[in-house]
């Protein structure tokens, strides 16, 4: 029976889609049959970040309305076996996410997939609430910045009250904090909240710290999830995060400011 993971944040633009793509890819690379669903109806981005925007025929809303079945809409990733993308409509909006239609789709997906990643839209309205409703786990994507932390706190409150698990008084949704766009140098200068600051305010277990990296933009533009970029510190950090999600112990990397080392020029990038 598949496990549903919602990637949510409250705040927009913090890295939900980047994270959904990276985590789904990471899980599939480890042999788990994974599907990643775009819940951002009307403002879809997942298909771009996954690199399958030119193969979208049917979408989530088509399946909810019965215009197509799941197999017609799911897109197999060309690079990785076990990985499927379920894009959404660009022409409709969040009202098209009908509760019973979504329920039906989720039930069917849980039968054939190990992991179902729900890429949530920003906000706390219908789109975001629908995305988190079926969650068994949640990855709360947060930037080390006051507005993002406050919005994440709000969405965590909703995970405790607006999910199916909360309504049926089942075991609560497993919460995981993912700190993204982290810059140790700016933390050192006092310009950015530190990991400890964020952990103290949100009181949610830390899944990982993803460093600010230019490679993320490159990944979006090329349609290749950043975890597949061997040279990217962000990619490495996502790999660590996926490992921790699956129960492994991994030390937190990319937390300390890099020491400027003139020898670097000679020996190339040091592994961090």
């Amino acid at each position: 029976m598949g496990k549903v993971i919602v990637v949510t944040s409250g705040k927009g633009g913090v890295g939900k889609t980047t994270t959904s793509a990276a985590v789904a890819t990471g899980l599939a690379l480890r042999g788990h049959r994974t599907v990643v669903i775009d819940f951002d109806v009307g403002l879809r981005n997942l298909d771009l970040v996954m690199g399958c925007e030119r193969r979208v025929v049917f979408d989530f809303i088509n399946v909810i309305n019965g215009d197509a079945n799941l197999n017609q809409a799911l897109i197999r990733d060309k690079r990785i076996e076990n990985l499927y993308v379920f894009p959404t409509s660009q022409t409709r909006d969040k009202d098209a996410l009908k509760r019973d239609g979504v329920d039906r789709v989720m039930t069917e997906l849980k039968k054939t997939f190990d992991y179902i990643i729900c890429d949530s839209p920003a906000g706390i309205e219908h789109g975001a609430l629908t995305a988190l409703y079926h969650a068994d786990s949640a990855i709360i994507v947060t930037n080390p910045e006051v507005s993002s932390v406050r919005d994440s706190d709000r969405i965590i409150g909703m995970l405790a009250s607006k999910t199916r698990r909360a309504e049926k008084r089942e075991k609560p949704v497993e919460e995981h904090l993912l700190l993204t766009r982290y810059s140790p140098e700016r933390v050192r200068k006092g310009e950015m909240l530190s990991v400890d600051d964020v952990k103290e305010i949100l009181s949610v277990p830390l899944l990982g710290i993803i460093p600010e990296s230019e490679t993320v933009l490159k990944a979006s533009n090329t349609g290749m999830p950043v975890i597949l970029d061997a040279d990217s510190p962000a990619g490495r950090a996502y790999e660590d995060a996926v490992a921790r999600f699956l129960g492994e112990q991994r030390e937190m990397r990319f937390v300390m400011p890099e020491r400027k080392n003139f020898l670097r020029g000679w020996f190339g990038r040091a592994a961090s």
Binding site: I124, R150, D151, D153, R154, I156, G157, A160, I201, S203
Partner: peptide, 27 residues
């Protein structure tokens, strides 16, 4: 006993309230 998250309102009608957790901004 759980953190009181932003946007949440807790009202102890007719009694005291004891919170053994942080109360977030906006709560």
């Amino acid at each position: 006993t759980e953190p009181v998250r932003s946007g949440t309102q807790i009202y102890a009608r007719g009694s005291d309230l004891i919170v053994v957790a942080p109360v977030s901004p906006g709560a």
